[in-house]
Protein backbone atom coordinates (compact mmCIF):
# COMPACT_ATOMS: atom_id res chain seq x y z
CA UNK A 1 0.00 0.00 0.00
CA UNK A 2 2.94 2.30 0.67
CA UNK A 3 3.58 4.31 -2.40
CA UNK A 4 7.17 5.46 -2.82
CA UNK A 5 5.80 8.63 -4.35
CA UNK A 6 3.80 9.37 -1.21
CA UNK A 7 3.60 13.14 -1.24
CA UNK A 8 4.27 13.50 2.46
CA UNK A 9 6.99 12.02 4.57
CA UNK A 10 5.94 10.90 8.04
CA UNK A 11 9.57 10.68 9.11
CA UNK A 12 10.52 14.34 8.95
CA UNK A 13 8.58 16.20 11.57
CA UNK A 14 8.61 19.92 11.48
CA UNK A 15 10.57 21.60 14.19
CA UNK A 16 8.71 23.10 17.12
CA UNK A 17 7.87 26.70 16.92
CA UNK A 18 7.69 26.69 13.17
CA UNK A 19 5.30 29.37 12.12
CA UNK A 20 4.24 27.42 9.10
CA UNK A 21 0.92 25.59 9.40
CA UNK A 22 1.11 21.82 9.72
CA UNK A 23 -2.54 21.45 8.99
CA UNK A 24 -4.63 24.11 7.38
CA UNK A 25 -8.27 24.28 6.43
CA UNK A 26 -9.59 27.11 4.29
CA UNK A 27 -13.17 28.10 3.63
CA UNK A 28 -14.79 24.73 4.37
CA UNK A 29 -18.41 24.11 3.46
CA UNK A 30 -20.19 20.91 4.35
CA UNK A 31 -23.88 20.09 4.45
CA UNK A 32 -25.76 17.09 5.75
CA UNK A 33 -28.97 17.15 3.81
CA UNK A 34 -30.40 20.66 3.71
CA UNK A 35 -28.69 21.95 6.86
CA UNK A 36 -25.19 23.38 6.47
CA UNK A 37 -22.83 22.18 9.18
CA UNK A 38 -19.86 24.20 7.96
CA UNK A 39 -20.27 27.49 6.19
CA UNK A 40 -16.87 28.86 5.42
CA UNK A 41 -14.93 27.63 8.42
CA UNK A 42 -11.16 27.49 8.46
CA UNK A 43 -8.34 26.62 10.82
CA UNK A 44 -4.56 26.54 10.99
CA UNK A 45 -2.72 24.18 13.25
CA UNK A 46 1.00 24.57 13.82
CA UNK A 47 3.24 21.73 14.85
CA UNK A 48 3.07 20.94 18.54
CA UNK A 49 0.36 23.41 19.49
CA UNK A 50 -2.87 22.62 21.26
CA UNK A 51 -5.84 24.31 19.61
CA UNK A 52 -9.20 24.27 21.27
CA UNK A 53 -12.22 24.37 18.98
CA UNK A 54 -15.07 25.86 20.96
CA UNK A 55 -18.63 26.74 20.25
CA UNK A 56 -22.17 25.78 21.12
CA UNK A 57 -23.42 22.31 20.25
CA UNK A 58 -24.54 22.04 16.67
CA UNK A 59 -22.18 24.81 15.63
CA UNK A 60 -20.11 22.49 13.43
CA UNK A 61 -17.14 21.85 15.74
CA UNK A 62 -17.10 18.10 15.19
CA UNK A 63 -17.66 18.41 11.47
CA UNK A 64 -14.70 20.75 11.27
CA UNK A 65 -12.60 18.20 13.13
CA UNK A 66 -13.73 15.36 10.87
CA UNK A 67 -12.87 17.39 7.79
CA UNK A 68 -9.46 18.27 9.20
CA UNK A 69 -8.78 14.60 9.88
CA UNK A 70 -9.81 13.57 6.39
CA UNK A 71 -12.69 11.46 7.67
CA UNK A 72 -15.21 13.66 5.94
CA UNK A 73 -14.63 15.35 2.64
CA UNK A 74 -15.85 18.96 2.59
CA UNK A 75 -18.28 19.97 -0.14
CA UNK A 76 -16.12 23.00 -0.80
CA UNK A 77 -12.83 24.32 0.46
CA UNK A 78 -9.45 22.72 1.06
CA UNK A 79 -7.72 20.91 3.87
CA UNK A 80 -3.95 20.76 3.53
CA UNK A 81 -1.68 18.65 5.64
CA UNK A 82 1.99 19.45 5.06
CA UNK A 83 1.03 21.24 1.88
CA UNK A 84 -0.77 18.24 0.45
CA UNK A 85 -4.45 18.47 -0.10
CA UNK A 86 -6.33 15.69 1.73
CA UNK A 87 -9.12 15.49 -0.81
CA UNK A 88 -6.51 14.73 -3.46
CA UNK A 89 -5.44 11.62 -1.57
CA UNK A 90 -7.15 8.29 -2.15
CA UNK A 91 -8.88 6.41 0.59
CA UNK A 92 -5.86 4.16 1.08
CA UNK A 93 -3.50 7.08 1.53
CA UNK A 94 -5.88 8.84 3.88
CA UNK A 95 -6.22 5.65 5.90
CA UNK A 96 -2.47 5.40 6.13
CA UNK A 97 -2.30 9.01 7.18
CA UNK A 98 -4.78 8.36 9.96
CA UNK A 99 -2.69 5.42 11.06
CA UNK A 100 0.72 7.04 11.00
CA UNK A 101 0.28 10.78 11.42
CA UNK A 102 -3.03 11.22 13.20
CA UNK A 103 -4.44 9.99 16.47
CA UNK A 104 -8.02 10.09 17.68
CA UNK A 105 -9.64 10.42 21.08
CA UNK A 106 -13.41 10.64 21.08
CA UNK A 107 -15.95 10.88 23.85
CA UNK A 108 -16.53 7.12 23.58
CA UNK A 109 -16.85 4.37 21.04
CA UNK A 110 -13.45 4.57 19.42
CA UNK A 111 -12.09 1.46 21.13
CA UNK A 112 -12.86 -1.91 19.59
CA UNK A 113 -14.93 -3.67 22.26
CA UNK A 114 -13.76 -7.13 21.23
CA UNK A 115 -10.08 -6.46 21.81
CA UNK A 116 -8.31 -6.14 25.14
CA UNK A 117 -7.03 -2.68 26.09
CA UNK A 118 -3.49 -3.70 25.27
CA UNK A 119 -4.53 -5.02 21.86
CA UNK A 120 -6.50 -1.85 21.24
CA UNK A 121 -3.45 0.27 21.85
CA UNK A 122 -1.30 -2.00 19.74
CA UNK A 123 -3.86 -2.04 16.94
CA UNK A 124 -2.60 0.93 14.87
CA UNK A 125 0.94 -0.43 15.04
CA UNK A 126 -0.18 -3.86 13.97
CA UNK A 127 -2.20 -2.40 11.13
CA UNK A 128 1.10 -0.85 10.12
CA UNK A 129 2.72 -4.28 10.08
CA UNK A 130 4.70 -3.93 13.29
CA UNK A 131 5.36 -7.37 14.76
CA UNK A 132 3.00 -8.34 17.50
CA UNK A 133 5.57 -8.58 20.30
CA UNK A 134 7.06 -5.23 19.39
CA UNK A 135 3.64 -3.60 19.03
CA UNK A 136 2.42 -4.89 22.35
CA UNK A 137 5.51 -3.90 24.25
CA UNK A 138 5.25 -0.37 22.91
CA UNK A 139 1.54 -0.39 23.75
CA UNK A 140 2.34 -1.48 27.28
CA UNK A 141 4.79 1.41 27.68
CA UNK A 142 2.08 3.84 26.71
CA UNK A 143 -0.42 2.26 29.06
CA UNK A 144 2.11 2.68 31.86
CA UNK A 145 2.74 6.25 30.88
CA UNK A 146 -0.99 6.93 31.11
CA UNK A 147 -1.21 5.11 34.45
CA UNK A 148 -3.50 2.34 33.21
CA UNK A 149 -1.09 -0.58 32.92
CA UNK A 150 -3.38 -2.60 35.19
CA UNK A 151 -6.23 -2.76 32.66
CA UNK A 152 -4.05 -4.04 29.83
CA UNK A 153 -5.73 -7.41 29.65
CA UNK A 154 -9.27 -6.21 30.26
CA UNK A 155 -11.69 -5.43 27.50
CA UNK A 156 -12.79 -1.78 27.17
CA UNK A 157 -16.26 -2.68 28.46
CA UNK A 158 -14.73 -3.84 31.73
CA UNK A 159 -12.93 -0.60 32.54
CA UNK A 160 -14.17 2.63 34.08
CA UNK A 161 -14.78 5.64 31.87
CA UNK A 162 -11.59 7.37 32.97
CA UNK A 163 -9.49 4.27 32.35
CA UNK A 164 -11.10 3.78 28.96
CA UNK A 165 -10.27 7.35 27.91
CA UNK A 166 -6.66 6.94 29.01
CA UNK A 167 -6.46 3.78 26.95
CA UNK A 168 -7.87 5.77 24.04
CA UNK A 169 -5.23 8.47 24.59
CA UNK A 170 -2.54 5.80 24.66
CA UNK A 171 -3.82 4.42 21.40
CA UNK A 172 -3.95 7.84 19.82
CA UNK A 173 -0.33 8.50 20.74
CA UNK A 174 1.27 5.11 20.27
CA UNK A 175 2.21 5.68 16.65
CA UNK A 176 3.86 9.00 17.44
CA UNK A 177 1.31 11.04 15.50
CA UNK A 178 1.84 14.65 14.40
CA UNK A 179 -1.76 15.60 15.14
CA UNK A 180 -4.13 14.22 17.75
CA UNK A 181 -7.81 14.90 17.17
CA UNK A 182 -9.76 14.92 20.40
CA UNK A 183 -13.54 15.37 20.24
CA UNK A 184 -14.95 16.05 23.70
CA UNK A 185 -12.43 13.62 25.16
CA UNK A 186 -13.68 14.26 28.68
CA UNK A 187 -17.35 14.57 27.82
CA UNK A 188 -18.35 11.43 29.67
CA UNK A 189 -16.05 11.93 32.66
CA UNK A 190 -16.37 13.73 35.98
CA UNK A 191 -14.19 16.82 36.38
CA UNK A 192 -11.37 15.18 38.34
CA UNK A 193 -11.01 12.31 35.89
CA UNK A 194 -11.48 14.65 32.99
CA UNK A 195 -8.73 16.98 34.18
CA UNK A 196 -6.36 14.08 34.67
CA UNK A 197 -7.02 12.77 31.16
CA UNK A 198 -6.46 16.25 29.76
CA UNK A 199 -3.23 16.66 31.69
CA UNK A 200 -1.94 13.32 30.46
CA UNK A 201 -3.04 13.99 26.89
CA UNK A 202 -1.54 17.46 26.69
CA UNK A 203 1.67 16.52 28.46
CA UNK A 204 2.20 13.48 26.28
CA UNK A 205 1.44 15.51 23.16
CA UNK A 206 3.89 18.22 24.22
CA UNK A 207 6.57 15.66 24.92
CA UNK A 208 6.19 14.14 21.49
CA UNK A 209 5.63 17.49 19.80
CA UNK A 210 2.23 16.41 18.53
CA UNK A 211 -0.35 19.03 17.77
CA UNK A 212 -3.74 18.59 19.36
CA UNK A 213 -7.04 19.70 17.89
CA UNK A 214 -9.33 19.68 20.88
CA UNK A 215 -13.06 20.03 20.33
CA UNK A 216 -14.79 20.92 23.57
CA UNK A 217 -17.50 23.10 24.96
CA UNK A 218 -16.00 23.06 28.44
CA UNK A 219 -13.88 26.12 29.22
CA UNK A 220 -11.83 24.28 31.82
CA UNK A 221 -10.88 21.69 29.23
CA UNK A 222 -10.22 24.39 26.68
CA UNK A 223 -7.87 25.99 29.22
CA UNK A 224 -5.40 23.20 28.45
CA UNK A 225 -5.01 24.61 24.97
CA UNK A 226 -2.56 27.18 23.67
CA UNK A 227 -5.23 29.07 21.80
CA UNK A 228 -8.81 28.66 20.81
CA UNK A 229 -10.95 28.80 17.71
CA UNK A 230 -14.60 29.65 18.04
CA UNK A 231 -17.10 28.03 15.71
CA UNK A 232 -20.53 29.51 15.47
CA UNK A 233 -23.14 28.71 12.81
CA UNK A 234 -20.55 26.90 10.72
CA UNK A 235 -18.15 29.81 10.69
CA UNK A 236 -14.94 29.84 12.62
CA UNK A 237 -13.00 32.62 14.26
CA UNK A 238 -9.40 32.14 15.23
CA UNK A 239 -8.31 33.94 18.34
CA UNK A 240 -4.66 34.73 18.75
CA UNK A 241 -3.36 33.96 22.22
CA UNK A 242 -3.80 36.85 24.67
CA UNK A 243 -0.63 37.50 26.58
Amino acid sequence: MTDPATPYDPGSAQGPGSAQALLEAVDLHKSFGPTPALDGAGLRVRAGEVVAVMGPSGSGKSTLLHCLAGILTPDKGTVRYRDVELSAMGDGLRSELRRTDFGFVFQFGQLVPELSCLENVALPLRLGSVKRKEAESRAREWLERLEVADVADKRPGETSGGQGQRVAVARALVTGPRVVFADEPTGALDSLNGERVMQLLVNAAKETNAAVVLVTHEPRVAAYSDREVVVRDGKSREMEPVT
Binding site: P219, M239, V242, T243
Partner: peptide
Protein backbone atom coordinates in the same frame (compact mmCIF):
# COMPACT_ATOMS: atom_id res chain seq x y z
CA UNK B 1 -13.92 38.52 26.59
CA UNK B 2 -13.72 34.79 26.15
CA UNK B 3 -10.18 35.08 24.91
CA UNK B 4 -9.24 37.08 27.98
CA UNK B 5 -10.93 34.64 30.29
CA UNK B 6 -9.33 31.65 28.64
CA UNK B 7 -5.93 33.26 28.83
CA UNK B 8 -6.43 33.70 32.55
CA UNK B 9 -7.63 30.15 32.86
CA UNK B 10 -4.61 28.86 30.97
Amino acid sequence: QRAAHLAAMR
